[in-house]
Simulated scan of single mutants.
Amino acid sequence: MQTVLQTSIAGTKPSRGKVRDIYDLGETLLIAATDRISAFDVIMTNGIPYKGIVLTQISKFWFEFFAGQVEHHLIDDDVAGFPNPFCDHADQLAGRTMLVKKVEVLPIECVVRGYLAGSGWKEYQADGTVCGVKLPAGLKQCQKLPEPIFTPATKAELGAHDENISFERAAEIIGSEKAAYVRDRSIEIFQKGSAYAESKGLILADTKFEWGLVDGKIILIDEVLTPDSSRFWPADKYEAGRDQESFDKQFVRNYLEEIKFNKSGPGVELPPDIVAKTSDKYIEAYERLTGKPFAWRS
């Protein structure tokens, strides 16, 4: 199967993000997850085979997993049910595309952290806090936190970095009632997803959710608990006090660090072995989470 770096449907013009091509259909959106990959907020020149399908199918799995517990934006993921002309382009869209409700997106990233990793670990070493949340002294790198914490961030424009903000600042941006709701629901979903992941031998270290408003209700949108929006670690290899193996773009980031990539400007072409290893890692995450073989590999 070819890597899909962008979708191209005659007579239409999508907006393109780092990974997704979004088609505005008026009342709804069609969101196609391509195989583009970004690292350090830079899009690489080649992609990762099947990555977009993995992200879409894992999100679909979680939307179904949380059915009846949280309302979400997914309407359909069967290309045959898409409106014209999209229904005739299964070659580009199958497996990687969702027809979703159009919402007013809440302009904050809802980050939940269960472990002390990434930028949180760096801040903790300097200040004993994560996004301003005071934590107990003496915690190790990647140690499990006493309880999950909500650390929102602003949404950055393409090519820029998200900025961590306090809960109080989030409440100023979207209103205190909405901020409390997305905080509580994000933590609740994180805890349920984490418990399920543990049953599959995976640790959910942290994640980010997005929420939107439709008909006066706040619903879950975008991708959910995928390797692009979350840190998953293999439980059997976990040990606090060091970096962990992960089910994401770890091979890509490591390679870019090795070649001393300057983390800006145009992306580079990733070598075949890095591409293959990364693709395998994404597919393994799908298979471990869902318990199903990945049916799209040709």
Rank of each mutant, 00 (worst) to 15 (best):
A197K: 04
I221F: 06
L213G: 00
I203S: 03
G193Q: 01
L213E: 15
A205P: 04
D215P: 00
E210N: 12
D206S: 11
K200G: 06
K200Q: 15
A205H: 01
I218M: 08
D215G: 05
K208H: 08
L220Y: 02
L202Y: 04
A205E: 03
S199R: 13
Y196A: 09
K208L: 10
D215A: 15
A197E: 05
A197C: 14
K192R: 15
T207W: 03
G201E: 12
G201T: 10
S194Q: 14
W211H: 12
E198Q: 14
T207G: 03
W211V: 05
E198P: 00
D206Y: 09
A197T: 11
L202E: 05
L204E: 01
L220K: 04
G216R: 12
I218Q: 02
D206N: 13
F209L: 14
W211F: 15
V214R: 15
F209E: 00
A197Q: 07
I221K: 06
F209A: 10
L202H: 04
E198V: 08
K192P: 01
K200V: 10
D206E: 14
W211I: 02
D215M: 02
W211M: 13
G201P: 07
G212M: 07
V214L: 14
S194V: 02
S194M: 09
L202V: 11
E210S: 12
K192S: 13
E210H: 12
G216F: 08
G216T: 10
G212Q: 09
F209I: 10
L204I: 10
F209D: 01
A205M: 14
K192C: 01
S199P: 08
I218L: 14
V214E: 13
T207P: 03
G193M: 03
K192V: 13
W211P: 05
Y196H: 10
I203E: 01
I219H: 09
L202K: 05
G212S: 07
I221A: 03
I221R: 05
A197G: 09
K208Q: 09
L204T: 05
L213M: 15
D215K: 13
L220P: 00
K217R: 15
T207L: 07
L202G: 06
V214C: 08
D215F: 01
K217W: 04
K192F: 03
G193V: 05
G212W: 06
S199V: 07
Y196K: 11
E198W: 13
G216S: 10
K200F: 06
E198N: 12
S199G: 12
K200E: 08
K217N: 14
K217E: 14
L213H: 04
K192N: 12
D206K: 09
D215C: 01
K200W: 07
L220E: 01
I218K: 00
I221C: 04
S194E: 15
E210T: 08
I203C: 03
K217G: 06
E210P: 06
I218C: 10
A195G: 03
I203Q: 01
I221E: 01
I218V: 15
A197H: 06
L213Q: 12
L220R: 01
K200D: 06
Y196Q: 09
L213S: 09
D206G: 11
S194T: 09
E210R: 13
L202Q: 07
A197V: 13
I218H: 03
E210F: 08
T207H: 06
V214H: 08
A205W: 02
I219Y: 05
E198D: 12
D206R: 11
Y196D: 10
A205S: 14
A195R: 14
